[in-house]
């Protein structure tokens, strides 16, 4: 029951995000949207994921968006109105996807194909081979270490990209913004 209440609340939040014009409110609401998702992950037994979402989605992402608002503007200009071609695309794609779900295994079905492949092996062998009760950590760090190495590289690259894009401090001269060589050094 709480599962469906949370899902409904997420849809309401997303619709409110669509309608709001004040970007400050949009950012705060997207933070609460993330927190809502984190609670949903706990309901679905994914405690590690919930932990990450609460720290990252509701915490850091909100702070970064607020930082961007301080650097740009906090109010959206005019309401673009309903864009009918885009709405039509969304409805068609959504209908196709919903048609596709009719063949999906039902929610919580223990016989679903996803639970028959490698997952039971991980749960059975993980604690024996790595000596760790948390199966998520043993898969993350050991069985799928390559995967995680790639993800850490992406985080590294994104930080390097942010440094390359706006790492140098800007200076305003006659209304033209220039970035100086001095970089981000204080």
């Amino acid at each position: 029951m709480i599962f469906y209440a949370l899902l409904t609340f997420m849809v309401v939040s997303a619709l409110a995000l669509l309608w709001l014009r004040n970007l400050f409110a949009v950012v705060m609401l997207s933070g609460s949207f993330s927190l809502n998702a984190a609670v949903l992950y706990v309901v679905m037994d994914a405690v590690d994921v919930a932990f990450t979402e609460a720290a990252v989605g509701a915490g850091i992402a909100t702070v970064l968006m607020l930082g961007t608002l301080a650097l740009t503007t906090s109010h959206e200009k005019a309401d673009p109105g309903v864009s009918w071609p885009h709405l039509a695309v969304v409805v068609v794609v959504g209908a196709a996807l919903i048609y596709g779900t009719l063949d999906m295994p039902r929610y919580g079905d223990p016989m679903a194909p996803i639970h028959q492949h490698v997952a039971p092996e991980y749960i059975e062998r993980g604690p024996k081979q790595t000596g760790m009760p948390n199966v998520v950590t043993s898969i993350l760090a050991s069985y799928r270490g390559y995967d995680t190495l790639g993800e850490v590289t992406v985080v590294f690259t994104a930080a390097a990209g942010v440094l390359a894009l706006i790492g140098r401090r800007r200076k305003k001269k006659n209304g033209v913004i220039k970035r100086t060589r001095s970089g981000e050094r204080p």
């Binding site: 970064l64 590294f156 930080a159 401090r169 200076k171």
Partner: peptide, 17 residues
């Protein structure tokens, strides 16, 4: 991850001379 998040925040917060 910690260094990346701190770097990204400081860069965003320290834009203007």
């Amino acid at each position: 991850v910690a260094a990346a998040m701190i770097t990204i925040f400081y860069v965003f917060a320290n834009q203007d001379d």
